[in-house]
């Protein structure tokens, strides 16, 4: 968090606002269970030839109007510390989610509510709810390598990016399709390019490479441990590595996930946030 806040304060980084959307950040949303569900729920029709946009749109379409609940473990490794958090999460639709920290004890009960473009944090120690300022959107979420904006993204990425299939065939022992996405002119995004490798067999993502405006690699997100959860095949582990600090990483492990529950909107209220 320090890095990001410092950059914001010093003005070296674009200040995030609700208008700044990016497929990159939004793609990270994947780490939210529902986004995962989308990607994983994309059942390819055998024998059908899909274009890049088809693949990504399927993902988007499946993403909308679903709900999820689950538990996950987040491991954050930096040059100076390593910590593991247990998290419980709920999500509904494309713009509501709630994440609560179960452990460690110091942060137990700390919760993040995302409602539309706003992020609220509940701090049990001081019993206060604080709204994240829009200038903090690109700051780290809970000390991880994910940003707050990664949680908030909701526009379709085919709206912001032109995607092409740039490679098909075996790579690292897997038959893959590589999609390269370049932001459209005037698209309000922060990444210069996003390259996604998906499995040819079921279009599940394997790795996403993010590039900055100067097309230098910025961060890699790797998907692994594909397994069946709640009736769907999902990558249970997501690993985010910042390219400039290869010794650091954030690993998200889905311990349990359930889809399509009936969740009341009250779950995503500030009142519930404080419980």
């Amino acid at each position: 968090m320090n890095d990001y806040i410092r950059k914001i304060i010093s003005g070296k980084r674009k200040v995030g606002s609700k208008h700044v959307h990016s497929f990159g950040r939004r793609a990270i949303l994947i780490f939210l269970p529902l986004a995962i569900f989308i990607l994983l729920g994309a059942h390819p029709v055998r024998g059908e030839t899909l274009t890049a946009d088809d693949i990504l749109n399927k993902v988007d379409d499946l993403y909308r109007g679903t709900s999820s609940y689950g538990m996950m473990t987040m491991e954050v490794v930096t040059a100076h510390w390593k910590r593991t958090l247990s998290l419980e999460f709920w999500s509904k639709g494309k713009d509501k989610s709630l994440i609560r920290i179960l452990s460690p004890l110091k942060e137990k009960g700390t919760a993040t509510l995302r409602a539309g473009n706003e992020i609220w944090n509940y701090l049990p120690k001081v019993n206060r709810v604080i709204k994240l300022p829009s200038s903090m959107m690109s700051a780290s979420w809970m000390g991880s390598h994910f940003t707050n904006d990664d949680l908030v993204k909701e526009s379709r990425f085919t709206d912001d990016y032109s995607c092409q299939i740039t490679f098909q065939g075996p790579r690292k022992g897997e038959n893959i399709i590589e999609l390269s996405c370049i932001p459209k002119p005037d698209a309000p995004v922060v990444w210069g390019k996003v390259a996604i490798d998906v499995r040819h067999s079921d279009y599940l993502p394997i790795v996403m490479h993010y590039y900055d405006e100067k097309l230098r690699p910025a961060r890699d997100m790797t998907f692994s441990q594909f397994k069946k959860m709640s009736g769907r095949t999902l990558p249970a582990v997501l690993t985010l590595v910042p390219i400039d600090k290869p010794q650091e990483k954030t690993v998200v492990i889905y311990d349990k996930i359930t889809f399509d529950l009936s969740l009341n909107d009250d779950v995503f209220s500030i009142r519930n946030l404080q419980k």
Binding site: H80, P104, E107, N121, L123, M142
Partner: peptide, 16 residues
Amino acid sequence: IVLLVQAADGSLGNEL
């Protein structure tokens, strides 16, 4: 005033 910081050990520091 609520203070919310990322502490040196990675934890969330918050105080009134």
